[in-house]
Amino acid sequence: MTGAAKKVLSPIPGVFYRKPSPDKDVYVKEGDAVKEGDVIGLVEVMKNFYEIKAEAAGVLEKFLVNEEDVLDAGQEIAVIVAES
């Protein structure tokens, strides 16, 4: 059984990254389990890197944006399906 799907939004505009740095692995792969507070990506704006965190535990079902896409504020980044 799958629980409720929750979308993770970017609070700020900027460039989206799934990796902590270019030579590292992605924070989370699609299908991975995440805990509340886990970092799933970064948004870069004004030379700051803002960590996007999972707001609830569950499985990160899907990313809705690609690496290095420029996001608008409020744009949907990923879907997390809650554990049931």
Partner: peptide, 8 residues
């Protein structure tokens, strides 16, 4: 012109 992320 599109504003880039370098905007502060």
């Amino acid at each position: 012109w599109t504003v880039t992320t370098e905007a502060n």
